[in-house]
Amino acid sequence: MIAVATNATMLIATPRRLPTVLLFGVAVLSVIVVVAVIGIWLTPYDPTAFAVRSRLLPPSTAHPFGTDEFGRDVLSRVLAGGHLSLAIGFGAMLISLLIGVPLGLLAAFHRGVTEAAIMRTVDLLISLPPVLLGLLILAVTPPSLGKTIIAVGLAYIPILARLSRAVGLGLLREDFVQAAFARGEGALVILWHEILPNAWPPIIVECGLRVTFAILLGSALSFLGLGPQPPSSEWGLMIAESREFLTQAPWVGLAPGLCLSVLLVSVNLVGEGLREWLDPQLTEHSHG
C-alpha cells in the first residue's frame, strides 16, 4: 500500500486537559480512601464490643447507623472495615499488574514455546469465571484477608497478561522498535526505552478498571464467607451477616451496602476518567 503523503504537523494525543469525570472521581475517592484508612482510629465505639442490651437499635444520634444483633455500633464497624475493601481492591490489582504484565510482555517478545506456555496457562485460568476460581482457591484452605487478595489477584492475572501481550505485539511491529533491533539492542533495553513508555496508557487504564472489579469480587467472596472471617467487619461479610435480620433491622445491611456502593462508584469514575484522559479511542474490552 502506498501511503498518501502527510506533510502537515500531526498533533499527538499527549496528556490533555484532565476530564471532569476524572477530577470528580478522584476527589470523592480521596475522601473515601482517607476515611477508610484512618477509619480504625475514628470509630466512636469499639467495633467489636458486644452490648446485648442495645441490640438492633434503629439509627439515632447516638448510633448514626444503628446497632447490629450483638449491639455493636454499625458506624464503627463500617469505619473499621473500610480499609479491607481497599486492600483487596488495590492489593489484587497490584498482584495482577506485577505478575500479569511481565508475563504478557514476555510472551510478546519470545514468541514460540515461551509464548505458548504462558498463553496456554492464561487460557486455563480464564476457563473458570473469576468467582468460581476464587471459590476453588479459598475453599480448600481457611480463608483470610491475605488469601482473598491472592485469589482475586490470581483471577485477574490472565486479563492483564493478555492485554500486555497484545499491546506488546502491536508495539514490536512499530518501525522505531525495529530500528532498535537493527542496533542490536537487547530485549530488556528495548523493553525499557521503547516499549514501556508507549505501553503504559492502556495498561494503566485497565488497572483502574481492575480495582473496581477486584473490590466487587472480593466483597462477593466475603459475602459467601470466603473472605476475612468474623469478627472482621469487611463490608461484604457485614451484608451477609445482616440477612438474618433483614426485615427487622434493614440498616444493618444497608449501611455497609451503601458505603460499598459509593466506594465502587467513585473507583469506577476514576477508572473511566483515566480511560477518557489517556486514550479515549481505546475500545472498552473490560472483563469483569
Binding site: 512499530e174 518501525d175 530500528a179
Partner: peptide, 15 residues
Amino acid sequence: QIVFQNPDTSLNPRQ
C-alpha cells in the same frame, strides 16, 4: 543500518 518508510511510526513518540 536501515531507514524506514513511514515517518509517523519510525520515531519513538515519547523521545
